[in-house]
């Protein structure tokens, strides 16, 4: 996806850089979980076949115990979430839905913050539910680790203030006092 791609949706343009809502975040998380589970199943099948090729006379797909499945899938999920949030602020699900995780001041997450956030999210999914009722769309993981999930459809948002963006457009800051987005 090109950095110069235009956002055609008017609502999309208006909400860029603002806190993302519950539904988008939940769908993105759902996509991430499905991707990780799919990767895990494929991984188990491939490892099992490879093992049988070398050490067995017949090929069969192993069925690990439930607790092993759960533990390995959980570890994979934590690694996946940490890698995504630490590197670009996005996992594949968030990339697809145009969301980005940043710190409260807009800076990228450091490794430990990303890891702790991933541990909490992978262990206790309902932490996100708080975003539905919180006045600032903050989930429990955001409150705990000082993070924010924003709408950010275009890639490469991390540019220090004062430097012109790559495409030469003037930098624009979000007005702090603006935006009564959701009217009761």
């Amino acid at each position: 996806m090109s950095r110069h791609r235009e956002i055609r949706s008017e609502r999309g343009q208006q909400l860029q850089g603002l806190r993302a809502g519950f539904i988008s975040r939940a769908v993105a998380s759902g996509i991430d979980v499905v991707l990780v589970l799919f990767a895990y199943v494929v991984g188990v099948v491939l490892v099992s076949i490879a093992w049988d090729l070398f050490f067995s006379k017949s090929i069969s797909v192993a069925a690990p115990p439930h607790w092993v499945n759960e533990l390995l899938a959980w570890i994979l999920l934590v690694v996946y979430l940490t890698a995504g949030w630490w590197s670009t602020g996005r996992t594949l699900g968030k990339q697809l839905l145009g969301l980005r995780v940043v710190r409260s001041d807009g800076s990228p997450l450091r490794f430990w913050r990303a890891l702790l956030r991933a541990l909490l999210c992978a262990t206790f999914f309902p932490v996100l539910l708080l975003a539905l009722v919180n006045r600032r769309n903050r989930g429990l993981e955001d409150v705990a680790f000082g993070t924010v999930v924003t709408y950010d459809w275009l890639p490469a948002s991390y540019e220090p203030l004062g430097q012109p963006p790559i495409d030469g457009r003037p930098m624009i800051e979000v007005r702090q006092s603006s935006v009564p987005i959701v009217r009761p």
């Binding site: 001041d105 807009g106 800076s107 979000v174 702090q176």
Partner: peptide, 14 residues
């Protein structure tokens, strides 16, 4: 829904 972008640029499309 605003974010305090301190020291970091908001997304280019903001």
């Amino acid at each position: 829904l605003t974010v305090r972008w301190n020291g970091t640029a908001p997304p280019v499309s903001v």
